[in-house]
């Protein structure tokens, strides 16, 4: 009887790496459209308040944005290399690359923290009197800025947690040179987070 339970319980869990990848991509599309909704809002308001957006954009520090862009691009590189490494059966190297990716993610968050606290200390945050006294276009710009980069930062955080889990899977050989789809899917997620930032950076920091 017990054996029957065992066999029945295991029957439905079958391995299909391509299926898992399809599932992941479909999920990424929902993320893309989720941010897409906000990009749509951004487009409409930039169309309506173009001059104010350019004005407000000057209050952002391009340097912060540029550094964070470079950090994320590099983390994408180490992420992709981590997968190549595990497929070439070098577990140590794969773990190293993954650890680097997590480190860059952390660096991004630290940077973000300083950037946001600078904004907060100069009185710019949603609902602040300083901001409410500004023209409407500027209120909207900062509303979008905080919501969009905030939601993106949330995704970076989630990504960090996922990558940490992957790190321990790598360590304990759950992920190995034959079974690495979980690492690959986490990588896909991480690259999507990067792609979102690739668009956020010029749209918020580089308007003149």
């Amino acid at each position: 009887m017990n054996q029957l339970v065992e066999s029945v319980v295991h029957e439905h869990v079958h391995r299909d790496d391509v299926g898992a990848k399809i599932g992941m991509w479909l999920f990424l599309f929902t993320e893309l459209i989720l941010f897409g909704g906000m990009f749509l809002a951004y487009a409409v308001y930039r169309y309506q308040y173009g001059d104010f957006f350019a004005l407000a954009s000057k209050k952002l520090d391009v340097f912060f944005g540029l550094i964070n862009t470079l950090i994320l691009l590099t983390s994408s590189l180490t992420m992709a290399m981590s997968i190549t490494a595990i497929r070439r059966e070098s577990k140590k190297l794969s773990m190293l690359f993954l650890a680097l990716t997590i480190f860059f993610a952390l660096l991004f968050m630290v940077n973000k923290y300083f950037e946001w606290s600078a904004k907060f200390s100069s009185g710019i945050f949603p609902g602040s009197t300083e901001l409410l006294n500004q023209p409407k276009g500027i209120i909207i710009y900062f509303g979008l800025y905080f919501v969009m980069t905030g939601l993106h930062a949330l995704h970076v955080l989630i990504g960090m947690v996922i990558l940490l889990v992957m790190f321990f899977y790598l360590k304990s050989d759950v992920i190995n040179s034959d079974y690495y789809i979980m690492l690959e899917n986490s990588g896909l997620y991480w690259h999507l987070v990067d792609i979102i930032w690739i668009f956020l950076f010029p749209l918020f920091y580089l308007i003149h």
Binding site: S76, E184, L188, L192, F199, P202
Partner: peptide, 23 residues
Amino acid sequence: LSVLVALGIASLKALLVLLVFMH
């Protein structure tokens, strides 16, 4: 043109990430 150029470059970057990093 500046917004078009910015978006064009961003799209190119995204395309590279999609095609190579995301396999």
